[in-house]
Structure formats: structure tokens, C-alpha cells
Design a protein around this nucleic acid. Sequence first.
DNA 1: ACGGGTTGTAGTCAGTTGGACTGTTTCATT
DNA 2: AATGAAACAGTCCAACTGACTACAACCCGT
Lengths: 252, 252
Amino acid sequence: MVTRSRARGGVPTGYDPTKFPAFAVTVDVVILTLSEGELQVLLVRRGEAPFAGMWAIPGGFKLPTETLDDAAKRELVEETGVDATALLSQFGAYGDPGRDPRMNVVTIAYLAVLRDVGSIAAGTDAVDASLVSVSKVLDGTIELAFDHVRIVADALERVRLDIEVSGVATAFVGPTFTLAELRSVYEAVWGVQLDGANFRRSVVSDDAWVIPTGRRAAPGSAGGKPPELFRAGRAWKAGGPIRRPHGTRKKS
Amino acid sequence: MVTRSRARGGVPTGYDPTKFPAFAVTVDVVILTLSEGELQVLLVRRGEAPFAGMWAIPGGFKLPTETLDDAAKRELVEETGVDATALLSQFGAYGDPGRDPRMNVVTIAYLAVLRDVGSIAAGTDAVDASLVSVSKVLDGTIELAFDHVRIVADALERVRLDIEVSGVATAFVGPTFTLAELRSVYEAVWGVQLDGANFRRSVVSDDAWVIPTGRRAAPGSAGGKPPELFRAGRAWKAGGPIRRPHGTRKKS
DNA sequence: ACGGGTTGTAGTCAGTTGGACTGTTTCATT
DNA sequence: AATGAAACAGTCCAACTGACTACAACCCGT
């Protein structure tokens, strides 16, 4: 709360707003997608100091006239051209002193899960932009600027939880999808292996988690029965059909 | 991310940090406790404009030299004298334009669950401070300053989730507690009624959710068998013993 | 001190869920 | 056509859930 004006650090009771510590507020967006069965995060290579040449997650300054959500949405559009309003969710704030070597910066971190990042074009100032394996970021193979490694780690933890209680899993796949595709989302995010038959039974229950379209997808190159195509049913809030196995976890 | 310096809104590429929109960053702490079987939130009555005389949740400015967590911890100590480092968890950021009529303020909201707030003393500048029923805040009986109603609502939603997946429930009770006390926490937070026998079976499983102390508490004034005293076992991360009933919810 | 009311604790039982598994269908490839 | 691969369907069993009943321990009244 901002107007408490207890005498603290010499701040007068009837304070002048300009006298309070000034911060820059930014929003950073962790864009996750699934590619070749592996979680990927969209990174940009910084063109300027500090951390020039290093990878970082896209983001930018919040404007006083916009909400945090709008800022994140705007940044996402600017960086990727994707309008993912419904997919954006705030998951953390980071404000450690010195996280930006130049000034006081507090950043609000957002998470966006996309099925397809589309044509990745480096931003107007970024040297490069591309998808990078999340595991490579977390194990330090790829170093990130600022405290972005921690942000990515937190984002992953968040999406692991979100995928269980909300229907974010469908965001990883297209508007229509096969159950195998949807299942691979859970498997990639949780790092587990799920039984295809049981998965089908859970998802295609009387509740309309997914809706059959009647059409079938083309079978893979290995042949096989062409799978049924589904589209996302009612966005399942508060308790999805698939529960994260935590007892007897089978690593993939 | 702060150093991206795309040309946006006239900001030059080689920018001057002082030219970026300045914000004040605050931390607000929602302190929840259980009193008489009802969820309570600690509020302070504002002594100054704006919103003078209105209730609000305690909070204050983040200093550039401290982390967000430290700021929340400091505020909590200053306002309540309680050191609840382990209990504090960040759950949201709020930065809508105009949420503070005087300046650009982004606040990071924290949640603390206490078993006993202790002697509530109004802060140095607050006119009053006391526990207020959460339901009275949410239904508008008590009006809050700024967007604090939304913050409290979000905090409640957060604790409802936290209590299921982590062991926050034990934070509502003392270091030793009876199972009835612990059960009443779940009932109050979720607004449900749980079967005492089944609750016991779930919590006192082979896994050490709670550890019996051997001692017994004094029975209530109405008599009855004196209940066994437990203490919190291993902090259960990722999946507690009690699952929130969402299918057949029995209202209390 | 005795018995009834109250509360904690233990046990039972039916219904449901979830994991593992087996079998069948349906297609492309050869 | 035969083969193989994948989708789809059904079975089995263990574990869990919710509701209920029975017993035990204790306070309080008379």
C-alpha cells in the first residue's frame, strides 16, 4: 500500500511522491512451446550492454498508461506477432537489488504457452531470436542474462502446475489435435510417460474435456490407424481430467 | 527485460535510465488467520489521503537495497511484530494505471498465514488495525482502499490452492495441534465440511504428514475424549493428504 | 459416584478411480 | 494380400473415497 507514510528512512509524513525510490518496471515473457517432444523457450540474443550477446527472455518496459497484462500482451505481440491474450498468465515478480546493474528494476514475469511460435524474427534490436531447449537453459549449457534462468525455472514449475488444474495443455497443440499429441504435451511437461489407453479413457469421459470433430488426421509415416481429431472442449477450470502422477512416477 | 532498447515511444536506443517511466514499487501483505472458525484478514485503517479512514491491507515501499521478499518480511515485522519468513509467499503483482490516484505504483502482493496474530497494535500512522472477516471484505460489507479487495480475493484463491498442494494448513494452527483444529482449517478455507474419521485416516497414514506427540490436549468445555496432540510432520510438498472436494461439495 | 452427553478414535463396507494389461480395429506400406 | 504400426476398446485388480457404525475416554450434571 502506497500511502502509508510512517516515518521511515527520513520520509516525511506529508510526502512528496517524487521523493520515493524510483523503479523501472518491466514485464518479461517466458514463451514455451513444444518442438520435437521437447520443451522449448523463446530467447533473444541481446544486442547491447549489459549482457550484450547473451541470451535473454523477451520483455520490455511497462508504460504508466497500461496494465501489467496489457504490457505483457503488447510485448508478446511486438516480439512474436502472436496475440495470446488468453494464454498469458502472470506468475512472479523479481526485484532483487542489482539484478539490473544500472538501475532499480522490478520485473513482472508472464508465461505464454504457444503451439507454434511461427516465423521467429529477431526483434528490432535483438541480434538473434530462436527457440532453445528448456533443459539446456536449466542445466546451464546456455547462459541467460540477468536472473532469467531463475525466471525460466519458475515458469516451468508454474506450467507444470497449470497444466494439471487448467486446460493449458491444449495451448501447446493446434486448434484440432490428436490424443497422442495432447498426451505428448503432458509427457513433455511432466517428464513422465502416460498410458495411451488410460489417457484416452480419462480425457474422453462423459465430461466434455475434448470434443471429437469426426475428422481424422493423416497417419504418421510409419503407417497405423489414422487418429481421430479433437478440439478443445470446455476450458476446464479447477481440476482437469489428468492428474500428475507423483506416487509411482515413471520417467520417460 | 530492461535493456532491450527498441525504438518505442521515442525512447532513444542509447537510452538514459532516468528517462524511463518511473514507478513506485510497494509490497502489500495479506495476513490471514483463523478465528472462531472464520477466516480473518488483518487490516489497517488509513490515516491519510487518499482513502483516509478506509480499511486497507498493510504494506509499504520497497527499498532499492532489499529484495521483494525482504521488503515484505520487513513490512510484516513492522506492522505486526511477527517474523514469518517461511510463511510469506508472493502471489501477484498489481499495476493498473490509476490504482493509486497520485502516482504510478506497482505493488507486489504477499500472503502470510498465521495461527495467531498476537496483540494487534495499530502502526505508527494507522488509525486502527484489526482482524476482519474475509467474507465481509469480499461481499463488500467492508470497503477497502485501492484495489485491495481484488488482492484479498486473489490471496484467498491462492491459499485455497496452497492448502491443497503444500502444508500451509499447519501454519494456521499452533506448533502442536489436534486433528479437529487442523480439520477446521480446511473446512474454513474451503468452505466445506469434512468427515472427522476420514480426515484422520488420510492424515495419519504411513506417510508422516503429522507426528503424534503422545500428549493429549485438554478436552473442551463440553467434555469428550481429550484429543491427541500432533505436530507438523515433513512439510508435504507436491501433493498433500487431503484433496479438495470439488465434485460433491458439502457446504458447511 | 453414577449415567448421559460429548468428543475422539477405530473399523467396516460399497462405490469409484487409476494403473497395467490384453485384445481388436483400421489404416499405410510392401 | 500380408505385415506392421498406431489408434481404440475392454478387463482386471489394487487403492482410495465417502459414508456410516461402533467403541473409548472424558466432563458434567444430579
